[in-house]
């Protein structure tokens, strides 16, 4: 093999990976939000603590996820204090399921591809 993808080993339909979720920091955020119940929300500082990111970094990634309609950011007041709550939308939950399924398909149906990855 010359380092490229073998056409013999490749499956008929190679699943494509969602670039929004594929970036590891955003994957971290989406997986963390998916751990919560469907209608649950988490406060920004708590999410920051769970995912271990700076406020600026987390805001940047949340903006990208919000643009893709994967997360919902809600600004509200709790005991007269402004709070930002974040939740995963149905589209976001579905995107994570699709992403995980695509990865599993790649691992099982394109072993030559994953072998190359592991060796890289």
């Amino acid at each position: 093999m010359d380092g490229g993808v073998s056409t013999k080993a490749a499956p008929a339909v190679i699943p494509r990976l969602d670039p929004i979720i594929h970036a590891q920091p955003r994957l971290r955020v989406v997986v963390a939000l998916a751990t919560l119940g469907e209608r649950d929300q988490i406060a920004f500082p708590r999410l920051q603590e769970v995912v271990g990111m700076t406020a600026g970094n987390l805001s940047t990634h949340l903006r990208k996820l919000e643009e893709a309609a994967y997360v919902k950011v809600e600004k509200t007041y709790r005991r007269r204090t402004p709070v930002t709550y974040i939740s995963l939308t149905r589209a976001g939950r579905r995107a994570l399921e699709d992403y995980t399924a695509a990865l599993q398909t790649l691992l099982t149906e394109a072993p030559s591809l994953t072998r190359e990855e592991d060796g890289s």
Partner: peptide, 12 residues
């Protein structure tokens, strides 16, 4: 680290 794309196996 941030913004690096992990491999398929590593992502799973």
């Amino acid at each position: 680290p941030d913004d690096a794309s992990p491999s398929v196996g590593a992502s799973l």
